[in-house]
Design a protein around this nucleic acid. Structure first.
Lengths: 216, 216
DNA sequence: CGCCCTGTTGACAAAGGTCAACTAGCGTGG
DNA sequence: CCACGCTAGTTGACCTTTGTCAACAGGGCG
């Protein structure tokens, strides 16, 4: 049996690993200083962390253009990097806000720890992680003009046909704007030649023009 | 063995329930018409659904004041109401956007299906659901003035001491505003007498004044 | 002790919210 | 089957809010 750091029997991860009842926790704890970069958005998602002490900020950049903004903060008791289970790359950049203690595990270790594929809990976890991820994409937090948010959303959801089915009121809510503003943004993209749109459907004509010129 | 609807062997939930290998899926499928209310924010969270066909919109109201807005949309293959595992009440109102087929399960059934407490996958799922929920609270999507968003955030996070530890830049990102705007909002709340604040810490003086008069 | 970084304050501009009028499409009922 | 009315969406005008740019101040760390 591995020597476990003190307190692991009280830690949710330790408990789930039967620490104190003959089990060994596969997570390895480390100290990181304030500002330490845990992982970078877009890097290979090769592991996850459990935060034992301290605070971690999750940054995400919008479409690669501007500098990333904080999309969430994680405190002691949270996991970060769990997208390793369902994605090839990290969805965020994780940085320690203050000094932290994090317990890390490799992707393989995580895969093994979580248990067999198609167990109910793992299935629910994976579906939740995937949904959470696409939510975040829509939810480009206010930053960016209404037109660019609509354009990014269309570029992402258009191919899946979603734009055709959802009422404008719901789309406006998702993008954090008023129906009137959405209508104007759609009109602007139509004038730009990127889409054709009437009040019942939207078709992407030119993907380059969609995201291309915010300055036109 | 229960009779399973066709296609359950291909459904993630069915697979996780070993349908086709002697298992029975505890979820029961139902048809619901467009606009059907599946559950209401604040109601007892007494079960979850898996969306087999169609689209469901999740609405959430801000602090009870205005009418709810759509915070997310769930498509076929998603779960809704999984917060039954970690919360006493539903966090959102779920409404069918178009005609849907949803497979429902009671809270007890879900608890049993997900497997024993303190299994690794269930632990990770529960932590993820809880974090997702608090994220959503911060993430009051743009709607509402800067001052009211800051006030709600302070009212929620202040007691936990979070406001004291996070740098303003991060708080501003979380609330979807610029640091300058955050600073002005804090100054306005200080002038209102709701808080005392200098550049290193914030103390709530009068909770009523915080959320109370948006018209003052 | 001084520099740098974070936060604050001010003035201005622009983006988006609000209110109102109008139109198209759809469902309902005669 | 057609007409009516309702709801969702569009467009216009105006105004508030917030973002932007710039200068400044306080605190912490070297």
């Amino acid at each position: 049996m591995l020597r476990q750091p003190r307190g692991c029997a009280d830690c949710p991860v330790g408990r789930a690993s039967s620490v104190g009842h003959g089990g060994a926790c596969p997570f390895i704890d480390r100290q990181r200083r304030a500002g330490h970069l845990l992982y970078l958005e877009g890097d290979d998602a090769d592991g996850a962390w459990f935060i034992k002490r301290g605070t971690v900020a999750l940054y995400r950049s919008r479409c690669g253009d501007t500098e990333p903004t904080v999309r969430a903060v994680r405190f002691a008791g949270a996991f970060i990097g769990l997208e390793s289970l369902v994605r090839a790359t990290y969805a965020d950049t994780a940085r320690a806000v203050a000094e932290v203690t994090v317990c890390g595990i490799s992707r393989e270790g995580l895969d093994h720890w979580i248990g067999p594929p198609w167990s109910p809990a793992r299935t629910a976890l994976e579906v939740t992680l995937r949904d959470e991820h696409v939510d975040r994409l829509s939810h480009t937090t206010g930053h960016g003009s209404a037109i660019s948010r609509v354009a990014e959303w269309l570029a992402r959801e258009g191919p899946r046909g979603v734009a055709l089915e959802l009422p404008r009121q719901i789309v406006a809510d998702l993008l954090g704007m008023r129906p009137e503003t959405l209508s104007r943004a759609i009109a602007a993209l139509r004038d730009r030649g990127a889409i054709t749109a009437d009040r019942t459907q939207i078709t992407i004509v030119d993907s380059d023009l969609l995201l291309g010129p915010p300055n036109a």
